[in-house]
Design a protein around this nucleic acid. Sequence first.
DNA 1: GCGACAG
DNA 2: ATCTTGTCGC
Length: 235
Amino acid sequence: MRKPLPADWLAPPDLKAASVAQREIAALCEMEDRFGPVRIVAGADTSMKWRDSRGPIHAAIASMMWPPRDRLPASSITAVPDIPYVPGYLGFRESPALVAAWEALPEKPDLILVDGHGRPHPRRCGIATHLGVVLDVPTIGCAKSLLCGKVEGDLGEAAGSIAPLVDRGEIVGVALRTRAKCLPIYVSTGHRISLESAVAWVLKLCDGRRLPVPIRMAHDAANAARRAAEHHGEA
DNA sequence: GCGACAG
DNA sequence: ATCTTGTCGC
């Protein structure tokens, strides 16, 4: 059994305490491969009303069997976050709902691709790292834009091209051209996986798309949950 | 002090 | 973070 989670890791009283929690989580983040055979791979994402940073969010985790890629029923839940969106604190806004979605899953995934950064974060604790350490599950961060750091060198035009993402002298991730003639995505270690393995998994799961299929699946499931809630007269 | 800022 | 329609390129 694991040690019980510090309350501040998911519900700190203020952003000061949140920053302390992020440094604690970052210290426990593992950037080496530590997982067995992957039988189920998942994507995690949330949806909300446009520009409504205070209302409810809809979190979803969508899984597929690996390697046959058969999709499993997604787990989605609706909850009101403790905080609005604040750059650098996304984990505290979305992780509690994603943890609830995880707990509702009949079969737990062996690897989760998270919509957002892992290591490329001011305190090295993006949502992918946050969720990975809290759940003690291997996670990969996949973001569509930068929070911090800069891409070094030139990114090739071909699909599969990578360029290091450096922040304060540290390689925290890579810009990855998952598809020719598309903007790159930013891939990073979330927890219990190396950057090299993270890139390999993302490429395997993109299937001609800019974003990995599991993330797209989670995105669709979260949107479906939001529309279902709106259809019931909420918000 | 100023600017930048995942979702 | 969302939504819609048309349009363009491979």
